[in-house]
């Protein structure tokens, strides 16, 4: 299947405040939020990007929506280089690519009624006013907000978290996008509500034929949404595989630690002790070579000098680890 979004060796650096000694030395320190990321998102696929805070997953989502520009590398959408999407093309792209925010309580303007919140994208896109009411109504139907028109005049604070998240989704869907980036779409919601929103995400993706990227720190949730998962660590993709492979047969030592750390609701499942120690290092000064090596139980001398590349190990399964790539002759 053709790729809808292609990323080639994408790099994103954010400048950070310089200390006095750095000013004197003329140094320009930067956080390497993304450090050479390459992958494709197939048309119609659902791909998860998983990792801890600060691994670059949110930056990656923003780059795919052209909300920030890469420092290096190339991204393309439907065959067109992202860098050339400007002017009228950018307006068209904005209609096709939408973001579902992490926190529904922050995502809506508290002074806008929910009708205003959902009609806003139609106004911005210059859609004929005569179509507004119908398109808003159909977006609300898609997210199963029954009898919604009675609530058009309500304000965000009058709705529950689950209802708000449905409004946020209606707003993302109202322009009929083909690409959706959802950043932790359910992390702020109660369990019982969360299950309903996950089912809805799955349903709209199938009925509207959407391509979706879900950004999450929660492997257990991702299993219910995405066939494929990318695991990130300090700005790099360390493993890319079908989600069930990631969960059942993780190969990268970091992925193994992530899987071991996820708590399960069954007290009879004893969990293995964490195979790694310590914390994610400072992104301003990542270790040389493999950035995971100082926490890795299998680190070898080679890991300090040579950054492992993402390489295929089995059908659709790629890993960036020297354990999986024998020394070249």
């Amino acid at each position: 299947m053709a790729a809808l979004v292609e990323l080639r060796d994408v790099v994103k650096h954010f400048p950070v405040t310089r200390s006095l000694s750095e000013l004197v030395r003329g140094a320009h320190p930067a956080v390497r939020a993304l450090d050479g990321v390459t992958f494709d998102v197939g048309d119609g696929d659902a791909v998860a990007i998983v990792g801890e805070s600060g691994c670059g997953k949110t930056t990656l989502g923003r780059l795919m929506l052209k909300l920030v520009e890469p420092t290096g590398g190339a991204i393309s959408f439907a065959g067109a280089p992202m860098a050339e999407i400007t002017g009228e093309k950018l307006r068209a792209f904005r209609r096709q690519a939408q973001l579902v925010f992490q926190n529904p309580f922050d995502a809506l303007n508290p002074r806008f009624t929910i009708y205003r919140a959902v009609v806003e994208p139609l106004i911005n896109a210059g859609i004929d006013k005569a179509e507004h009411a119908d398109r808003v109504a159909s977006a609300f139907r898609r997210v199963h907000l029954a009898d919604f028109d009675r609530y058009y005049d309500r304000y965000p604070h009058q709705l529950s978290g689950g209802q708000l998240q449905r409004v946020v989704m209606a707003r993302a869907l109202v322009l009929g996008p083909r690409f959706l980036v959802a950043d932790e779409p359910v992390s702020m919601l109660d369990v019982s509500v969360r299950a309903g929103i996950l089912a809805l995400l799955r349903e709209v993706r199938e009925t509207m034929g959407l391509t979706a990227v879900y950004i999450s720190h929660d492997l257990a949730l991702v299993r219910y949404l995405c066939e494929r998962t990318l695991v990130m660590y300090l700005g790099r993709v360390v493993e890319d595989a079908p989600t069930e492979e990631i969960v059942r047969r993780p190969r990268h030592p970091y992925t193994q630690a992530l899987v071991a750390a996820v708590p399960v609701p069954d007290p009879d499942q004893s969990r293995a002790p964490l195979p790694i120690k310590g914390n994610v290092p400072d992104a301003r000064e990542p270790p040389s070579g493999c950035s995971f090596r100082d926490r890795c139980p299998h680190a070898m001398p080679r890991c300090a000098t040579e950054t492992p590349a993402l390489k295929p190990v089995a059908g659709g399964h790629q890993v960036a680890c020297h354990l999986d790539t024998p020394t070249s002759p």
């Binding site: 369990v191 257990a220 399960v264």
Partner: peptide
């Protein structure tokens, strides 16, 4: 109900 609504990595 809570148990059913809860994601389980191993189920």
């Amino acid at each position: 109900g809570l148990r059913n609504a809860f994601p389980d990595l191993l189920s």
